[in-house]
Design a protein around this nucleic acid. Structure first.
Lengths: 163, 163
DNA sequence: TCCATTTAGGTAGAAATCTAAGTAATATTG
DNA sequence: CAATATTACTTAGATTTCTACCTAAATGGA
């Protein structure tokens, strides 16, 4: 980044094919935009409770089943294990969980919510519900169900290709 | 993470409200899963060309309009400027773009694709199209259009709340 | 029993993002 | 015109996530 000579544009000759594949219409871009909108809103709304988005997914699972191993958690949350390690470290530091080695199998760590984290459930689940409701405003139940059906099929199609 | 005393589970008394807000049914989770599936596939398919997902979005815009400023790029791509800086640095290192200070306004940097990057267009756009098509397999045009309509409305609903 | 394999968790390092704050160039305004 | 504000890019630092690899504990077969 130091040159000065300004290049003349090789006149963008319209490619013909570009038009029928506009990013804004493609499934991937639509999903990406929606994802960022959800993330952003979630982050904003849970930050006041001292919870980060990375912690959220784990809290969500732990509110349902406490005392699980990290591997089990990773699977439930759908994250790789190193991600879980990092999230749990931050959660431990934030006083949201405790970790203990299992007595029967010393490889295993059991993850327990602290009272503080348990109390947050009543506060935070409504926050999530509210975001969902706000997102769905003006969308009928039938429309939403079709959306859900389609996005699941698309996710499934892609996941199939991974194996 | 050092204790040993194994805690007795406070028996997970089913909460009643949890059921009607299962993560797997919520718009946010559906979108997150789909997003990851798309990302993963994209990454896998463009990696052989030496392009990372972070570079992809910028390439995509630059293939359309070359020689734009970084600010303009950030906006087109939908990323914050520091993200653009990092992406462009990596792209410059990878020989995909050149950056030049504008002669008229020395604050501005103009970003130009290298011949190498231009050549990639013909290779990579089909890759993206292919992913989209694979994702949409078994989804009718009508279904897809409704999906698109709904996800756009949801994204719009959330974006509105940001301001 | 002992060695190889599997399982659970962790570390290292890279990438993609963001927010907040800094610097340099240009524009505006009293 | 000088002080101030705005604009364009950059740096710093945090977070979230991944892949690849490492270590310790448990398990299982020869």
């Amino acid at each position: 980044m130091k040159g000065f000579a300004v290049r003349k544009t090789k006149k963008a000759r319209s490619n013909g094919r570009a038009a029928d594949f506009a990013p804004s219409d493609s499934a991937g871009y639509l999903v990406r935009d929606a994802h960022r909108a959800f993330q952003h809103m979630l982050e904003k709304r849970i930050a006041p409770y001292g919870v980060t988005r990375g912690q959220w997914y784990f809290l969500r699972v732990l509110w349902t089943k406490d005392g699980v191993s990290q591997r089990e958690l990773s699977e439930s949350v759908g994250m790789m294990e190193p991600t879980t390690v990092i999230a749990l470290q931050s959660m431990e530091k934030a006083g949201l969980v405790r970790r203990e080695r299992s007595a029967e199998d010393k490889r295993k760590a059991q993850v327990w919510l602290t009272p503080k984290a348990k109390k947050l459930k009543g506060r935070l689940l409504p926050v999530a519900r509210h975001i969902t409701m706000q997102a769905r405003e003006g969308v009928t139940q039938a429309e939403f169900e079709l959306f859900r059906d389609v996005i699941r099929r698309m996710t499934g199609n892609l996941d199939k290709l991974k194996r």
